[in-house]
Computed example of a mutant assay.
Amino acid sequence: MTIVQPNDLQNTPSTALQDLPLLEVRSISKFYGARRGCENVSFDLYPGEVLAIVGESGSGKSTLLNCISTRMLPTSGLVNYRMRDGSVQDVCHMQEADKRFLMRTDWGFVHQNSADGLRMTVSAGANVGERLMAVGHRHYGSIRSTATDWLEQVEISEDRIDDQPRDFSGGMRQRLQIARNLVTGPRLVFMDEPTGGLDVSVQARLLDLLRNLVSNLGLAAIVVTHDLAVARLLSHRMIVMKDGHVIEEGLTDRVLDDPQAPYTQLLISSILQV
C-alpha cells in the first residue's frame, strides 16, 4: 500500500506524541438561534483511537462532528489539535488557508452522501490524484500509479480508473471516497454515517474494509452513526447523545453490554443485539 506524504510532513509521530491526545474537545456548544445543536461537549481522542458518536436523528451528533472538523464554527468552546511537530492549535480559529491545508494532509472526511466527497464528472483516478496534487505532487506516472494502488486497496478494479464516479454503484463510490481521503496518509478521519443508505450486504463489505484500513494504518477516527452495529465493529469508545447533550460515554463494549443511562438502555433495547 502506497501512502504519499507531503514533503514537509513526517509519516509517523514520535512515541512521546503517541501518549498525548491528538484532539482535545472542550465545552463545544452550537446554537441555531434559540435551538440547541449540541451543548458543553468535551472529550479527548488519542492517536489510533476510534470514537463513535451515536444517537437518534436530531440528537446533535452531526452538528458536533461538523464543529469538531471545522466545517461549522461552534458558538463556544475549543477544539485543540496536536500537529505533527507536537504543537497544539485551536483549529476553530485557524486561518482558512491553514484549515484547507489541514484537510488536505492530516485530516480526511468521509461523507454519508459520496457525491459530497467526490468530483462526479472526473475519473476515479483523478479523484484520488487530485488530493496528491493538492500536496505538491506533479509527476503524472507516479500519481496514476499511486491512484491505481489505492483503488486496488479499496477493491476497485484497475480497469475502472478512467471511469467517472457517476457510473459507479453506491458502495463503489464510498470506497472511492475512502481512497481519496486516505492517499495522503491522514492521522485523523471524520466519518458521517459512512454506511448510510447502502444495502446490508454492501454495508458489511464496506465496514470490513474500513476496519482493516483503520487498524492497519493506525488512524484515529470519529464516526457518527445511528447504527450501533457500526459502532461496535469500528470503535474503541463511544459517546451517546440526546437533545444535544452527552448522555453516556465509555468503552464501546461496556456501553453496549452494560448501559447505565436509561436512554442508552432504551436505545439498545430498541434494536436487535449485535
Rank of each mutant, 00 (worst) to 15 (best):
D253N: 09
L210T: 04
G250H: 11
L206K: 09
L210D: 03
T252P: 15
I239T: 10
E249P: 01
L206I: 05
Q203V: 00
L206S: 02
A221I: 01
Q203F: 05
A204T: 10
V224E: 08
N212V: 07
R211F: 02
D208K: 13
S201W: 00
A220W: 00
V224I: 13
I239F: 12
S201T: 15
S201Y: 01
L251K: 05
D199E: 14
Q203P: 01
R232P: 01
L210K: 02
Q260F: 09
A204S: 11
V230R: 06
D257I: 02
L256R: 08
T252W: 14
E249F: 13
V246C: 12
D253L: 03
L233N: 04
D257Y: 07
A221E: 04
V214R: 06
L210P: 04
P259F: 06
L234T: 10
A231N: 11
A221G: 01
L213E: 11
L228I: 11
D253G: 02
D199R: 13
A204W: 01
M241D: 15
E248M: 10
M241H: 04
K242M: 06
G197Q: 08
L256P: 01
G250Q: 10
Q260C: 06
L217R: 04
L209H: 08
V230H: 14
R237L: 02
R254M: 10
R232C: 00
N216V: 08
L210M: 14
H226R: 07
L213V: 00
T252L: 15
G250E: 08
M238G: 14
L219R: 09
L228M: 08
R237E: 08
Q260T: 08
D258R: 15
V246H: 14
L234R: 09
G218A: 08
V214P: 07
L198S: 09
G197S: 12
L256G: 03
S235F: 03
M241W: 03
R237V: 00
D257S: 08
L256I: 08
V223C: 06
I247M: 15
V246N: 11
R237F: 00
R211N: 03
L256Y: 15
E249I: 03
N212I: 06
L210G: 04
D243C: 10
R237G: 06
E248N: 14
I239M: 15
I247P: 14
L251Q: 11
A221M: 04
H226K: 09
S235K: 04
L206Q: 05
I239G: 07
L219A: 04
G218P: 10
L256V: 02
S215T: 12
K242G: 00
V224C: 05
A229E: 13
R254Y: 01
Q203M: 03
L228Q: 02
D258T: 15
I239P: 13
A231W: 13
D208Q: 10
L210H: 03
S201Q: 11
L251Y: 00
L217S: 05
L256N: 05
H226G: 14
T252G: 15
V240D: 04
R254C: 02
V202E: 12
G250V: 03
A204Q: 07
V224T: 09
G250P: 13
D258F: 11
S235E: 05
S215V: 01
V214L: 07
I222Y: 05
A229T: 11
M238P: 13
L251H: 09
